[in-house]
Amino acid sequence: MGRVSFFFGEAFRSLWRNYFMTIAAVVTVFLSMFLLGVVMVFVYNINAVLKDVEQKVEISVYLKDTASADDIETMQNEIVEMVEVKDSQFISKDEALKRLKEDLKEHEELIKDLPANPLPASFEISLKNPEEVALVAQRFEGRPIVDEVRYGKEIAERIFSVTSVIRNISAIFVVLLGAVSILLISNTIRLSIYARRREVEIMKLVGATNWFIRWPFIIEGLTVGLLGAILAVVFVLLGTDFVMDRIRENLVFLTVPYDAVSSLQTGLVLLGVGALIGAAGSGLGLRRFLNV
């Protein structure tokens, strides 16, 4: 116990005494964690929007008017049993007409005088993994009761190719930024250790073990990392709140799914990364000077 409080005392005294270095290190952690946080929130939201777009890729299976109720039921059972299917809905001819009427509310006269219902009955199928849309759609083609299968083939493919590119780019961005943060922070820490290398040498000569010297440095690094990360989290959360409000006000049509869980995740990741880099950075940065 005496030893633990000694290590903490040493760490905090030294943070206080070398306040200029402390501030420099905290600001470095803050800036890199803030950048990382902003990119993470950005990527998270892009992902959510992409998912939303992808979910809109549905298969519509239009049935011939000659299809009997039995045939339709058989097909419905079959669809429900497919593992790829997330959700499916049967739209009867009447329902299709009703929907059309709703859609055309202000131009009802256009379809008012139809002699008979020209719309086909259909199944609307959404998939667990929208990228399998072509595969599933194929199964319905050429069946006796099926008139046409539509899934917006080209649009779907284009969407998927664009989303995968965006996803890859943003993943690379996060990884790069993470690496840069680690370098930047550990460099700052190494600088502050270098300034005190003579002290470390003296401690060794007096007979201190490596861990006896190391602990205060690790606690220092941890503190710097946490302080910087806490600042970053505060600014990222305030910032996203502000930006999200503006987006919701001005771009009402965009579904912006930002939620509390993702903020919490971002916050925890930043705190964890900050603390880890801080502690590991000083623990490892010290290594060179311990070989006396």
Partner: peptide, 20 residues
């Protein structure tokens, strides 16, 4: 080595005191 050094008192020309 640290345990060895605890049994050897060292005094140097430049004192080697911890300035802080």
């Amino acid at each position: 080595v640290p345990y060895l050094r605890r049994n050897i008192g060292c005094v140097f020309q430049d004192f080697k005191l911890l300035p802080s």
